[in-house]
Each structure stands twice: as structure tokens, then as C-alpha cells.
Design a protein around this nucleic acid. Structure first.
Lengths: 201, 201
DNA sequence: ATGTTTCCACCTAGGTGAAAACTT
DNA sequence: AAGTTTTCACCTAGGTGGAAACAT
């Protein structure tokens, strides 16, 4: 099962923690959204290569609706099923990575990852904190944008990367208990029994 | 007791928490320095006005030796006395505010302070964390630099602001117990009995 | 029924001074 | 004797899922 390394415009962006993302994806990734805002877990992290050393870049992330459906979780089959059409979309927001803008060299600094872990999701349509506003029970796809700042007046060059394994469905409470288990096991902030003698299978 | 508001090159920088700084200054401010790095308390915070809206600025802070003396604390008189000449100075470092560079508008955003609270002091001359390297038992003066990034090739314009009430003497353990008391009372991270019924006089 | 909000105990992460051990 | 380093209990700050209350 080889996979392509995405390269566009000479820029290479590799998703970090791909294996974990795929484990979640196979179960049907759920992300909790709250009024005050909740982080994503896993967070989107990427290794970037192929930038011009001294050019400045902005790293951005947005989240687009995958389709026009509303979903609901069917317990007896442990599956997400279409349950109507999507709510009216909210004016889209873009999350600018807080270290932007930065030179290509800085973004590519050895062993460093471009991490979007400060990003938060909310279902509050009047949010004033700059969080990503999403509808609950909808399916979404994050996108990473590498924006090269040009010196002259021409528009900045935008290169977009999409990793399908980072798709998720928004919830206000977890539906699939396997997802809950996996979040507890892998997120250091989630309480659980990771360090006790208990085995979870 | 009026005081001048410092304005240079049309830029105005006002020290925040001036009253607290003066209370410390009157007792003889001490700052702990450690091998791993320790924050300053109080931190240097400033309100900035008079920047050009769309120009980009870097905010920086450095710490210069006030004189060529080494000091020691004399307990029976509760005073710092000169006790020899200063150690050889360390190659100077400049702390760049992590939000740099940013437009004038961003720095002057309403009610926002330019806060250098992430800055750390160390006595480790081999420090690799970018902390400010200082000698213990020496007297220092922080300086704020407002650096305007020019579009053309001319050198950036640097405007420097100095607030004498932020002078301090470095220690590895507090000497003056009134300083200790004041740090505990005012620094939320320091343990004490601020919220119990106990009065400290 | 089904989905949302609020509150909370339990975590991680990291900033304090005090005390003891160590150094010179 | 004087100053430094190490360790630690005690904080703040804030990210979790779960339970109960709430809403529709």
C-alpha cells in the first residue's frame, strides 16, 4: 500500500501522524464542536519541503463541507447514515497559522512541524474568537494552503493540499464508543486509564 | 509628581504597571536567574502609540549593564553595596517579541499590550534557548526597541525606550525579604496566603 | 428521541519560592 | 561564609470526556 507524496508547484507537504489519522478514518472520525471552541484531535500537523529559503510564506487552513448531507449515527449498525440535507453554509473562515508570515527556511527548520493544534472548532455562528464555525452532524474536509508572498504587485501564489484521511464528522457528543476510546488512549489531555494495569482491547 | 510620556520619532511607548515597578524599584528590584531560565516579574509590558498603520514593526528587548560594579546585599542595613568590579560581559542578545513582525495597527490594537512576559533570564553562558544571559549580582537596565521595517534598502529605523524604574539586580536567591513578600503577593504563580484570612504587613 | 449545553473531576504543561544539598 | 544548583510542593492556565440538565 504505497502512497503518493503530494508535490505541487515544487512544494511538498506531508501529513504527520498519517497512521493515526487512518485509524480514526476507518472508524469514522468524529470531532467535538462546542460553543466556546474545541481543539481538533488529532491536530493537523505537516512537514513542509521545497519552499524558497528566503521567501515569506503564510500557512493557512480551512475546512470545507464534503457534501450536501446531514448525517446521523445508527447505533445498531455502528455507521453514519445520510439523514437529510445540509444546513445553510456559514460564511467561510480561514485559520492563519500564528507563526505566519515566515521565511521558507523557518517553516522547513529541521525536525519542525507546521502544527495547527491551536485551531478550534465551534458551532457558535456568532463566534468572535476566530474559531472555525461548523455545523454539527456534517462531514468536513480540512485543507492546507501554502501562500507565497510575492514582492511585486501580482497576487500571492496559493498552493492547496488535501489529505482525505483527515475528513471528519462534527458532533456535540461522541457517538461511536471506539472513537471515544481512541481519543482517550491517544490524547494526553483526555482522562482514562492509559497508565493503569487495565488493558483496553 | 507628574512624569513625561516618552515620545521619540512620533512613537509613544508607555510602561504598563508603572506603579508596581516603582514599588519594586524603591525596595531594590531583584530578579532571579537560573540555569534553565526564569521569567521576569513583573514582566515588561507597554502600550504603543504613533506607529504607522500599515508599516511593519519588530518589537525587541535587550538588557544592558547599568555600571561596572558587582553588588552584594548587606543585611544589617538592608542595602545593596558595591562589592567589586563586574564580570566580563557576555555577548549581548536581543529578545525579539514573538509576534514580530506585525503592522503598526496590530501592535496598537485597542486595549492590547506589547508584553515581554515570555522572556527568560539565565546565568547559563552556554544557553541555547535564546534566553537573556546575565551575571548574578549585577545591576541591569532593560530597553525596548521599536524597529520599523523599511521597504527600500535603507537600514530599518530603530527607536529605543528606557524606563529607569525597570532596573534590577540579578540574584540566584532573593536577598531582601520585602522583595520576596511583594513577589508572592503580586505574582499569581508564586505560592502564598493571598486568599486566606491572614494579613501580611 | 435526539441532540445540545453546562458543569466538573481529572488530566497536561509549566511558572513559583523554599529548603536542602552542593560548591568554592 | 556566601553564592549556586537541585528538587519539590503548590500554584495558574487550560485541554479532556462524562454526567446531568436542558431543548426541541
Amino acid at each position: 500500500s504505497t502512497h503518493d507524496t503530494p508535490v505541487k508547484n515544487g512544494i511538498c507537504v506531508q501529513l504527520n501522524g498519517q497512521q493515526l489519522w487512518r485509524t480514526f478514518y476507518d472508524l469514522g472520525t468524529e470531532m467535538i464542536i462546542t460553543k466556546v471552541g474545541r481543539r481538533m484531535f488529532p491536530a493537523i500537523r505537516a512537514k513542509v519541503k521545497g519552499l524558497k529559503s528566503n521567501r515569506k510564506y503564510i500557512m493557512a487552513l480551512d475546512i470545507e463541507a464534503v457534501d450536501d448531507n446531514r448525517y446521523r449515527y445508527v447505533y445498531h449498525s455502528s455507521k453514519w447514515m445520510v439523514a437529510g440535507t445540509a444546513d445553510n453554509p456559514v460564511p467561510p473562515r480561514v485559520y492563519i497559522h500564528p507563526e505566519s508570515p515566515q521565511t521558507g527556511d523557518s517553516w522547513m527548520r529541521q525536525n519542525s512541524l507546521v502544527s495547527f493544534d491551536k485551531l478550534k472548532l465551534t458551532n457558535n455562528e456568532n463566534d468572535t474568537h476566530g474559531h472555525m464555525i461548523l455545523h454539527s452532524m456534517h462531514k468536513y474536509q480540512p485543507r492546507i494552503h501554502v501562500i507565497e508572498q510575492r514582492i511585486d504587485t501580482e497576487a500571492p501564489g496559493v498552493t492547496t493540499f488535501v489529505f482525505p484521511e483527515t475528513q471528519f464528522i462534527t458532533v456535540t457528543a461522541y457517538q461511536n464508543q471506539q472513537i471515544t476510546r481512541l481519543k482517550i488512549d491517544r490524547n494526553p489531555f483526555a482522562k482514562g486509564f492509559r497508565n493503569s494495569g487495565r488493558n483496553n482491547k
